[in-house]
Amino acid sequence: MIKAKNLTKKFKDVIAVDHINIDVPQGQIFGFLGPNGAGKTTTIRMLTGTLKPTDGEVEILGLNLKKHEIEIKRRIGVVPDEPRIYSHLKGFEYLEFVMDIYRINNKETLSKIEDLCNAFGVNYLEKMISDMSHGMKQKLILISVLMRKPEVVFLDEPTVGLDAKSAKILKELLKNYAKQGTTIFLTTHILEIAEYMCDVIAIINNGKIITQGTMEELKKQTGDENKTLEDLFLKLTAQEEDIKHIVESLSR
């Protein structure tokens, strides 16, 4: 469903993403982790056709992204890392806009919107987006994506700004969608979420995927089955020693 081969992005002299390979089959929840600036968002942007790769190929839903960009975009859903949407529109106007852009206009979508609004506690669709908080906008974007039930969903830090109930609903909803065949590509800094949700986890650091596998496989790689994902993550990204040193120095 999501395939990337030798995917590379250079910004002038900086290599943000360095020849990475990804293969996510249908119905899998793929967790893409990494420290800040590791290349997660750049990768998502290249996979969703919002950023041209310097090198490499992307295939989504069996279609080449370069050749079938618009068709792929119509069939996937993307929740960006920041909920930036047209501030001059009202909430419901934004949903109408998305419906039109994706050429969907059916009773099923409308009832889906209603269900999602009830689930996430969205009772402010009459408000101007400029008057909404980060969390309110995040929920609106989530609704605009989930109402279409896309075949592949990319989510970049989707729980940021969400209240506990909404975050839990989202997690469960995504797990259910995956069971029904939706492929999910997720980045998060909250490692508990990744551990709880993801079938496969990849860790990227300095633009390179340093490890990839199921939770069990990752634990085996480090040779300690009792370790949490947080321990593994910090060890693999070589931050464990840094943290000890920093905390000691700051506690003085």
Partner: peptide, 30 residues
Amino acid sequence: RKTSKNYKIKGYGTVMKAIYRKDLKATLRY
């Protein structure tokens, strides 16, 4: 800000209409 709760979501199904309507709203609301 006083806002009316009376709205009904309806799609129009055409991409160009959606873009023009959005931009027209932006123009008039600015």
